[in-house]
Amino acid sequence: MSVEVRLPTVLRPHAAGQTVVEAEGATIGEVLESLVRSYPGMSGQVLTDDGSLHRFVNVYVNDDDVRYLDQLQTKVQPGDTVSILPAVAGG
């Protein structure tokens, strides 16, 4: 199943400058793995080496942050939009 993934500016160079790409999967984890397979330059920027969500990104299904849903197990439906944004923080 294919969903639309919106990329932040920092990841777009790894996808030939595209703002929106397609990725496959029934869960957020599968979608992000599919994204990294298609665009290996994103490896290590979205998922950590042990396969968990990188703390420097926030991932949303439509309007909801997946950290407040089922994290990487969050299910996606056809037509959902997945958005990735940088986690913006400092001191």
Binding site: N58, Y60, D63, D65, A87, A89
Partner: peptide, 9 residues
């Protein structure tokens, strides 16, 4: 500081 992720979206 940490920008609220919902506000960011």
């Amino acid at each position: 500081y940490e920008v609220d992720p919902g506000d960011h979206l």
